[in-house]
């Protein structure tokens, strides 16, 4: 899995390529933890993400919760159909800010 960080004036973008599974989920968690505190808007760009499993979902949820508590925002960008359906299945679709 490859994570690319882009910092824009109003948001930080983490582009996640590959697979977000039990093996790689900790990497994403670590990358997010590394971000400076006070990140208002974090965008997780999933345009090249093939796959997400429950481990990935956990990271996403906890990140969402944290930012929410801090007054920030988590945006999930460009998830593919299958990931979308997982989000739907698990009800994450209601919780997350998903941008196509």
């Amino acid at each position: 899995m490859k994570i690319t960080k882009t910092i824009e004036s109003d948001k930080t973008i983490l582009t996640v390529d590959g697979r977000l599974d039990t093996t790689t989920a900790p990497e994403l968690a670590a990358a997010i933890a590394e971000l400076d505190g006070g990140v208002k808007t974090l965008v997780l760009d999933f345009k090249d993400l093939e796959y997400v499993s429950s481990a990935g979902l956990r990271v996403i949820l906890s990140t969402h919760k944290k930012l929410d508590a801090e007054g920030g925002k988590l945006i999930i960008a460009h998830p593919n159909d299958m990931i979308q359906s997982i989000f739907a299945l698990t009800g994450f679709i209601e919780i997350l800010n998903i941008e196509d």
């Binding site: 979902l57 698990t90 919780i95």
Partner: peptide, 23 residues
Amino acid sequence: PNIALKAKDRPIGGLGIFLVKSL
């Protein structure tokens, strides 16, 4: 898991087996 729960109320775990059963 209660998928209808709000984010902050959602527990982190439990999703795995749910997915298994669902899929």
